[in-house]
Design a protein around this nucleic acid. Structure first.
Lengths: 190, 190, 190, 190
DNA sequence: CATGAATGAGAGTTCATTCAT
DNA sequence: GATGAATGAACTCTCATTCAT
């Protein structure tokens, strides 16, 4: 990794923090200068503006988040178990709203007409549908209306995640959402 | 209504449109000048900044939105009927995301630490709890976990509403959310 | 004249001096701020950039420079007399190159693809052709090749004027150019 | 020629093209980097700025352009013939204004107070005077006022050359200038 | 109250220039 | 010598905000 690439990574990491805290529009190149300790010109030689910078951040995180349940399904891990860890992750993410790029993403899409959101949404949809069908096939999940339950999962999660950034929400609230999902799918309590 | 009050109302109405279109942070006093056709100074003699202006907008709409189900309940209108019209309204609102102040509110709260969101959220919660308990008492609704279902209602609605501003969503999607709520409460289809 | 219009005029006058001294590209809005004593924002509320500012300067001076020989011709003033004062003016202008917008014009045209130069050139051409034909008709001027002599007049004047900005030229040199023109037209010395 | 000298030559040639296209002030070291494919630092190790670079370009071309009519005169080639090829060259140069450094030179002199222009001007003056006197002595040219005709030659040529960069001029116009010169000197048509 | 001219702080951006490798 | 990352100064432009009229 050359010196330039290293700097680039540093900038991306530092601005990830900025974007998740402040959203997209509120982050200025000056802010990035400050947190990275770089000069204006140096920064601009890597990224020509916050747009490009945010895209680089997205690229980096979408690589990670590509994780779906495919592997677990192939290993024939019980659907209930996969569900359980997915719900756990959801709860954790709802509890730490400040780490989330969701607002930044939201603003970015509104400003740039990027279709990244559509993609992310479609991915999430597919991933959940796959899991639910797998669970039904194995007889672990009830014969739910897949489309309906996926919508409820995705949007209640997104809604809660977004709102938790601005109102203080109790863990119990997040729990009740994941509980609802679990009950819908398995018919039972955790 | 004096001339001054009229001007004030005009400003509020014009800026409502701006805020719902552009969110809170993106609206500048300059924008407001343009849509109202007023001069900078004139505008400032009514509102000292976008903060105050947005607060005035909020004040005006929260008066309206105070509508809960109290009246209907007092008239002993069947819970299923009240629910039906509430779900219908929800669907309509999800379909017209551009009319919504939700993003503006979101940004406003993040910037100003206002607790208006907490209030709005509590109100919505109370209103739905009241309806659900009323429906259960009348034997129209199933004996659901009230807290849980209210959370699902509120956050899936908010999530869908927000997301529909940035990705194109089919009416079918909104429908599946309201269908889910209906089934949870009444056990049946529409 | 409102206060705003007065300021506008002041800015135009002050920037005329700047443009003639420094050319077009070298004048920044900051320079204009300094010579007018105005703030950045104030300046920008009148002119959105040096382009617009220069256009305003041009507009003002082309109004003045519209002067051709039409009036004198109509008054049947002797062609030799009109010529004499025109040559005198030319000499004066060559002697004071710093007052000339020619370089600024040059740069402006190269940057903006404006066709103002073509117009100015055409005007100058027409004006001289008219005078020469008038002089020939009156028997005062020799039967010269009009196109040829006009080209020599215009370009030797422009060339001398431009060069005199950067090399020190003697009045004698300018004189020899006007002398040449006079001789071509009248066949005689001054 | 060492590798270093070769690089130096490459830089000079590449920047000649830049200067003739864009003038002096508009050429940045960044531009030169791009056309030469060199790095910033590499470039700076040869030339400390555009000033020095332009001086190197000038040095190279003034060597070439030192050509006067001395050789032809010594060979006793007829003055009319020398004149003819000089006028032909002039016409060609007026037709290809983009190849000319004249604007760059102009800007360079204005910025740096170099006296190179004075030298070039004096050279051109001397060269023409020599030719004209030679023609007169041989009885080929008319007994013109040498100073006057040289001024007309030089400045009408410069004026036309400069103007042709920014307004579209017909070959006929250039022709009429050279025709004028020829007629002045030889009294006849080509 | 209303106007709109003016201020000034701050963001975005570009480059000449330096310097460690 | 050559590289290219980094600096910092200068410039363009936008707005929130003030104030004389």
């Amino acid at each position: 990794m050359t010196k330039g690439e290293k700097t680039r990574e540093n900038i991306i990491d530092a601005s990830y923090a900025l974007f998740s805290m402040k959203g997209f529009k509120q982050v200025t190149m000056k802010d990035v200068c400050e947190v990275t300790g770089m000069s204006r010109g140096g920064l601009y030689s890597h990224f020509s503006g916050t747009d490009q910078l945010f895209e680089a951040v997205l690229e980096k995180i979408t690589e990670k988040s590509a994780a779906d349940f495919q592997k677990e399904i192939e290993k024939e891990i019980p659907a209930a178990k996969i569900l359980e860890s997915a719900l756990h992750l959801m709860e954790e993410e709802m509890k730490h709203p400040k780490d989330s790029l969701s607002i930044a993403l939201y603003e970015f899409v509104e400003m740039t007409d990027s279709d990244i959101m559509e993609q992310l949404n479609r991915n999430a949809e597919e991933k959940w549908k796959k899991l639910i069908r797998y669970g039904i096939k194995r007889g672990e999940f009830r014969e739910v209306n897949v489309d309906e339950i996926v919508n409820v999962i995705l949007y209640s999660y997104q809604g809660a995640r977004m709102w938790s950034r601005i109102i203080s929400m109790k863990p119990k609230t997040f729990r009740s959402i994941t509980d609802h999902i679990r009950k819908q799918l398995t018919g039972g309590e955790r």
